[in-house]
Each structure stands twice: as structure tokens, then as C-alpha cells.
Nucleic acid binder design. Structure first.
Length: 757
RNA sequence: GCGCGGUUAGCUCAGUGGUAGAGCGCUUCGUUGACAUCGAAGAGGUCAGAAGUUCGAUCCUUCUACCGCGCACCA
């Protein structure tokens, strides 16, 4: 037989060839997989395992964080597949509305000096789609290069036609149930991008700023933003504050203010912190969240001071039309001149709200927008959630809380549960309308005072569709079931007495029926709120069930200084480059081993190189085992009884095989407990420092020795350990293990071998 | 302010109620056909500090310090 493996392991050639081999087999698709398993008599259990890929944004390319996600999910998927489960990993991409639009707009501006209005809605969207398509193709290429065993036949996009219909249907149902409403509320307005953004998309930056104390009639109030104070006609104090006990709630007084005398009203509210400043404050309900709430509570007037472009309105008198930055020092001058400025605190730390999606400084504004009502209770029907009684009233918050509280959704690591609950407690109504062009158009049409909501437009003429689009997380919130065919694979539950659209059942045998709820949702902890929580909201309301049984959160991939990898810092490591240089196998292992779930990963090229060496080690160990084969098969011995009869394991051999069994049990247990780093490390250590360093080394003399029976036993043991190790290593380091498996002459793919029991 | 995580070898990090582990780096030696993308040997740690529980604590409890993160209506 002789040598069957090349001395050198050509990483790139092998990895590209092997991925094609897997794809050709069709086994990424669970339908083919179970057919194949049945045909081979390996009866597929009815158990299913499904993961929907967190769809990467089509804003360019994947980074190491994505690579980590792919590695972890691929391990879960390959393990489940080898366990014989009906295994689906469903791929897709996210249109990432604001992020993609602003990226394309920036590019166009750089190259052509034009903005989106110069191009017009239609042409601009054509350009965004062009970019998104290119971006998508590159991302798919990257995902495949990492060895991810996704079922490409089911690929989805958050902005494709089917997902559009799911979005429309979801919106319509929630609108009709009163859970989506249009209202005038305070929102986060980005004057730069000219759109609203959600609370979670805001990044708070601490900034030292001047803090001014101003004379407000008999009170002294403080502010870091004097330019918002023109319309302040309410002074708020704490009802228990002794200093102001002589002032009554609702008491009116005239005060000399920025542009002359105004009528001020005293308001008593517990939101005031008596220990802060003087314990008295004036409020600006139009431009401050907290002030807005106080005004809501007492039904106070509110007045706009700053327009949507960040310029002062006519109320500012001579400052009208000025940008804030320009106006502030001038306003302070005037206050000083009028004797209203009493003192200035120079060591004040102020928190500045920025749009984290590449936008500007957020200016809260009261605007007419679309919201999801998360707090009001409604009658729940058709819910399968544990602990939820149909016919009783719950809020969306209640449903979200219950899904995790009941244990129906398990969050790993555990500590994120607390963070999740805390987030829900503080959750306000979710503003879902965006004034951007790229995204799902809001499925609402207007004609005068008439409003029509539907998946298709209304009949008749004169209707105009809402120009806004939906927050990108609205469509990704549906991801676990919109990708599985919802709502078309759902049928009304005929047995149910109360008719309700959400009281429906998936059509038997449909993807939705088989794969939902999905088994695991694996993603970075940084999008726990953005995405994970919103999927729970959508799933528990629209389907009455959890979207996934388990949430596994991984950490962020950082550079050696602990900084987040980013393009602007130039500290990113390109996964594709690493895959070409050291192999996708090595890149994957470097992202798995040496890090616990939920903790950040500091990654260096050295680490990846280290695992490249491991792949080489596996290759060479396999080569040695295969080279040793002829030693007993050919040559001098004349025994014709066959191989089996020759084998007589020594006590040491039995000990080695017992150790293998033990390792198998340990690795399996680690994987079952989602401790992939421990499983990977154990395998690494076992293969290199036990198998290669000791077991192989100790076999050498026996393999070449005169005792043929003993040589055969030594070889048989090596072959067994090698094969079993390859199976266990496969989910972690799939390419090199599959290649060796093929070189060993197996007809089937290692990918669908049975996991050692 | 509230909450969470971290502090273990030079660096990056695993881990455990009972002699402390890996990778990289470092030192010395070694190319007899699996592997120099390697092998052999080695140096290197009062497991942040203090107190408590325990026969025994790096691990459990409490406190402190420092680093990082999340949340929050301190105008």
C-alpha cells in the first residue's frame, strides 16, 4: 500500500476542495440528511436540532466576531448532525437599514459629492441594493471559507419578498390588536441622519462641560444646556423638600427670564433629586426624556425650542436660526448681562447621546411616530407559553419576562438573565418608524383622516403610503420564524372557540412545524437587547411560543490591547486572510479554546499560528499511522487466518483504549454542557500529548518488531484511536479531519459519521 | 447611584475544596523517515489584599483595592 498521504498539508487547496465535497453531498440540508441516514440503515431519530444564523449585516465584510459565531455554531451543528439528529442551520443576511444606508450615502458623497436627495429615492435605493448584493456575495464566500455547514437552499434575507410579507403581517396583527400605535411622543432624533433611532442604539459619551446656575425668580436652577431653556415655564421641586414648602403645587408666579417676563408655575414631583444642585429645576418637555414624563404626569404644556436640523426656533428671539454650538456662548453672555447667571460649575460631567450607527448627536424631540406598546395589558389567546393563561391579560413585557422566568428559555451564561430582566423593567415603548429609505416600508396608507393598514395596499385612489420605513430590528425580530415560512405555513386552529389570528398551528410537516422553536440562539452578548429580546417579544406574541429554547452568548473579539476590533482603528484581523494563511481550522480553534462563554476573547495572530501547528500535527500523526499499515499486512508472515486473528491486545493497549473511552465521555459531556472551550482543550491535549507523544512513540518499536501479532495489535490500536479522535475532533477542526478520513479510504463523509458513544 | 464581570507563569487565558495548567515567549540540547509548522529537558506562580467557614481555601462567604462593562430621568 505504501504512503497514501502527501508529506505536506496544503491548507488552502484542501479546505476549498473539502467544502465543495460537503456541499455536493447535500447533507447540509436536513431533508437529504435524514434520507441518507435511513438509506444507510442508520435510523435517524425524530429529534431535531435547529439554529438560525444571526444574519450578518450587508455593510461590507465579516470580522473575527462573526468568525467566532460561525465556529461555535458550526460545532453545535456538526455535533448534532453526527448524533443523528435532523439538523438545520439556516443562513441569511440582514439589510441593517440605517447602517447600510449611511454607509452607501457616505461612499456616494465621497466619490460623487452627492447626497441621497440629489439622487432621489428610487435611484438611491437602486444603489444601496447594488451595494448590498455585492456585500452579500462576499459575506457568503467568507462564511463558506470558514467551513460553516449551513443549508444554503434555505437562505433568507431580512428584506426579501417573503420576509417583507411576514413583516407586513406582523405589523398588521399588532396594529389591529392595538399593540402598534401612532403617537406623539419624545423620540431620539438624529439631526445629522434626519431620522429617529431606538433607545438601544444610543451611545452615551461622558464629557466635561460647564454647568450654569441661573436665577429663576426666587429659585436657583441649574443647567448644562442653557439654549433649551427659553420656554421653561415650570419649576419643579420635590414635595418633601422643606426649603420649598412655602410654595404650593400649581402656584403661579411671574419671573424675569431670558427674553423678558414669563408666567411660571410651581410643580411638585417626586422625580426631583433633592440632593442635586438646589433641588429645584425647570423643565423642557420637548427636548428631555425625564422632563417629558413629568409633563405627561401633570398634563403640562410643551414647546419646541430646537428644530429638526438642530437650529433654534423663533422662541429664542434674536438667537433664532442659530446652531446650538454657536448660540450657547452668546446666550450665556446675555444671561450674564441680565444678571441671571449666578455661578458656573466647571467640573461637571455631562452625558452626551450619540447615534451609534454613524450618526450625530441625538436631540430628543416630540414627534409623531409609530410605536410598539410594551406596557399595556391585553387579552392573550392561543399562547403555549408556560405560566401564561389564555384569556387573561398580559403586556408584551410580561410575555418577555415570563419566557425566561419560567425557564422555557435558558440563558447562558446565567448572569445575563439578570441583565435581561433589568432591561425589561426599564423598557419604554419601542419607536419603530425611521425616516430613512432603505428598509421595509410601513404598511400603512392615509387618505385624509382615513388610515388603512394591510400587507397589500388599499383599493381605490387617493391613498398615500407612509413614507417611513421600519426599524431594522422589527424584521430581524421575526427571524426565527419568518425564515421558516411564517405566516404561510400556519393554519387557524379550528378547535379553538375564540377566533384569534395568533391562535394558529403550523401545518404538519412544514419547516415551522419541525424546526420551531429553534434549539439554540447563539450570538454576541452585545445584541442581547437589540435582537434577542425582540425575537422573544415577537415570538411570544405572534406565535405564542418561545423562538428558541436556549440562548448562548459569546464574548467580543478584541485585539491584544483589549480594544474592540474596528476598521477605523485598523486593529482588525481579517478572518479570510487568517484562513488562507493558517487555515480555517486553525482560525476556528483559536476562537474557541482559551475562552469561556460570555467572556471577551483577546486574539493574536500567534494564537492562530499555534493551532495551525496542531492541524499539521494531526496530519502527520495520521500519516504515520497509515504508513505503519503495511508493516504487518505484507511481508513475512504467512498466517492466512486474517487480520482479526492476529490481534492480541496487550494490557497496555487495553489501558490506552480505556483512556480513549474516558476522553470520549468527557468530551461529550463538555459539549452537552456547551463548554466548547473545555472540549476543545481536552481534545487538543489528548491528541497531541497522549496519542502522538506517548501512544505513538511507544508503538514504534512494536510496529517494526519481529512479533507480528504484537505489531498488528499495536497498529490496530493506533488506527482505532486515530479514527475515534478524528470523529471527536471533526466539529472543531472539520477540514483536516475530513481530508484524512477521505485519505484513509472511507466511502462516506466524516461529517455524517456517528458520534462516538 | 445600582448591577455585573475580571484580578492565576513574562504575555494571552483555562481550571479545581486536598502536590497549580495550556498556548505563545524564554534557556539548553537534538534533523536515526510521521511531524523543525517538530522533539527532549528546563527556568518561571505566597492563584490581587484582608478576615471568616473548613481538618484543609486559589476555589465557598464577607469586606477592600484596582481594571473593564452594563443600566439609570441627577436637570
Amino acid at each position: 500500500m505504501g504512503e497514501t498521504m502527501e508529506p505536506r498539508y496544503d491548507i488552502k487547496e484542501v479546505e476549498e476542495r473539502i467544502y465543495k465535497l460537503w456541499e455536493k453531498s447535500g447533507f447540509f440540508n436536513p431533508d437529504n440528511l435524514s434520507k441518507g441516514q435511513r438509506a444507510k440503515g442508520k435510523s435517524s431519530s425524530q429529534k431535531t436540532f435547529s439554529i438560525v444564523l444571526p444574519p450578518p449585516n450587508v455593510t461590507g465584510e465579516l470580522h473575527m466576531g462573526h468568525a467566532a459565531m460561525l465556529a461555535i455554531e458550526d460545532i453545535m451543528i456538526r455535533y448534532a448532525r453526527m448524533k443523528g439528529m435532523k439538523t438545520l442551520w439556516l443562513p441569511g443576511t440582514d439589510h441593517a437599514a440605517i447602517a447600510t444606508q449611511s454607509k452607501v450615502e457616505k461612499d456616494i458623497h465621497k466619490k460623487e459629492g452627492k447626497n441621497r436627495h440629489d439622487l432621489g429615492r428610487e435611484e438611491f435605493l437602486r444603489r444601496v441594493e447594488e451595494f448590498a448584493a455585492k456585500s452579500h456575495d462576499y459575506i457568503v464566500h467568507q462564511i463558506k471559507r470558514m467551513g460553516a455547514s449551513l443549508d444554503w437552499s434555505r437562505e433568507a434575507f431580512t428584506l426579501d419578498e417573503k420576509r417583507g410579507e411576514a413583516v407586513g403581517e406582523a405589523f398588521k396583527r399588532m396594529y389591529e390588536a392595538g399593540l402598534i400605535y401612532r403617537g406623539e411622543r419624545i423620540v431620539n432624533w438624529d439631526p445629522k441622519l434626519q431620522t429617529t433611532v431606538s433607545d438601544d442604539e444610543i451611545e452615551w459619551i461622558e464629557e466635561k462641560s460647564l454647568f450654569y446656575y441661573l436665577k429663576y425668580g426666587p429659585f436657583e436652577i441649574g443647567t448644562a444646556r442653557p439654549e433649551t431653556k427659553f420656554g421653561d415655564k415650570y419649576v419643579v421641586v420635590h414635595p418633601d423638600d422643606k426649603r420649598y414648602e412655602n410654595y404650593k403645587h400649581g402656584e403661579k408666579l411671574t419671573v424675569e427670564w431670558m427674553n423678558g417676563k414669563i408666567a411660571a408655575t410651581v410643580i411638585k414631583d417626586r422625580a426631583v433629586d433633592m440632593k442635586f444642585g438646589t433641588g429645584a429645576m425647570t423643565i423642557t418637555p420637548w427636548h428631555d426624556n425625564a422632563d417629558f414624563e413629568i409633563a405627561e404626569r401633570h398634563k403640562l404644556d410643551r414647546e419646541q425650542i430646537i428644530d429638526q436640523f438642530g437650529k433654534l426656533m423663533p422662541i429664542a428671539g434674536e438667537f433664532a436660526g442659530m446652531k446650538i454650538k454657536e448660540a450657547r456662548p452668546k446666550i450665556v453672555e446675555k444671561l450674564k448681562a441680565k444678571g441671571l447667571l449666578t455661578r458656573v460649575d466647571e467640573n461637571y460631567v455631562h452625558r452626551l447621546a450619540m447615534n451609534s450607527r454613524g450618526g450625530g448627536i441625538i436631540e430628543p424631540q416630540v414627534m409623531r411616530q409609530w410605536f410598539v406598546n410594551v406596557g399595556s395589558k391585553f387579552e392573550v389567546r392561543g399562547s403555549k407559553l408556560r405560566g401564561i393563561k389564555n384569556g387573561q391579560k398580559y403586556s408584551l413585557k410580561d410575555l418577555m419576562r415570563q419566557a425566561v422566568k419560567s425557564g422555557e428559555i435558558e440563558i447562558k451564561p446565567e448572569r445575563f438573565k439578570k441583565i435581561y430582566f433589568h432591561w425589561i423593567d426599564n423598557l419604554r415603548d419601542w419607536c419603530i418608524s425611521r425616516q430613512i429609505w432603505y428598509g421595509h416600508r410601513i404598511p400603512v396608507w392615509y387618505k385624509g383622516e382615513e388610515v388603512y393598514c394591510g400587507v397589500e395596499g388599499p383599493q381605490g385612489s387617493g391613498w398615500e403610503q407612509d413614507p417611513d420605513t421600519l426599524d431594522t430590528w422589527f424584521s430581524s425580530g421575526l427571524w426565527t420564524f419568518s425564515t421558516l415560512g411564517w405566516p404561510f405555513t400556519c393554519a387557524q386552529n379550528k378547535k379553538s372557540k375564540i377566533k384569534d389570528k395568533n391562535d394558529c398551528k403550523p401545518i404538519p410537516g412544514s419547516d415551522l412545524d419541525i424546526f420551531h422553536p429553534t434549539s439554540v440562539l447563539e450570538t454576541g452578548y452585545d445584541i442581547l437587547f437589540f435582537w434577542v429580546a425582540r425575537m422573544i417579544l415577537m415570538g411570544t406574541y405572534l406565535l405564542g411560543e418561545v423562538p428558541f429554547k436556549k440562548v448562548y452568548l459569546h464574548g467580543l473579539v478584541r485585539d491584544m490591547q483589549g480594544r474592540k476590533m474596528s476598521k477605523t482603528l485598523g486593529n482588525g484581523i481579517d478572518p479570510l486572510l487568517m484562513a488562507d494563511k493558517y487555515g480555517a481550522d486553525a482560525a476556528r480553534l483559536s476562537l474557541i479554546i482559551g475562552t469561556g462563554p460570555g467572556s471577551d476573547i483577546k486574539l493574536s495572530e500567534d494564537k492562530i499560528r499555534g493551532y495551525r501547528n496542531f492541524a499539521t500535527k494531526i496530519w502527520n500523526a495520521a500519516r504515520f499511522v497509515m504508513m505503519s499499515k503495511p508493516a504487518y499486512k505484507t511481508g513475512r508472515h504467512a498466517d492466512k487466518r486474517g487480520k482479526k486473528a492476529l490481534i492480541e491486545l496487550s494490557p497496555a493497549d487495553r489501558k490506552d483504549l480505556a483512556q480513549l473511552k474516558k476522553i470520549q465521555a468527557q468530551v461529550t459531556k463538555h459539549i452537552e454542557k456547551y463548554e466548547f472551550h473545555l472540549a476543545g482543550e481536552k481534545l487538543y491535549h489528548y491528541f497531541w500529548h497522549e496519542f502522538a507523544d506517548k501512544i505513538i512513540e511507544n508503538s514504534k518499536s512494536r510496529l517494526n518488531g519481529e512479533n507480528l501479532k504484537d505489531a498488528a495489535a499495536a497498529y490496530a490500536k493506533l488506527e482505532t484511536i486515530l479514527k475515534e479522535s478524528l470523529k471527536m475532533l471533526h466539529p472543531f477542526i472539520p477540514f483536516v479531519t475530513e481530508e484524512i478520513w477521505q485519505k484513509m479510504g472511507h466511502k462516506d463523509l466524516l461529517m455524517v459519521e456517528r458520534w462516538p458513544r
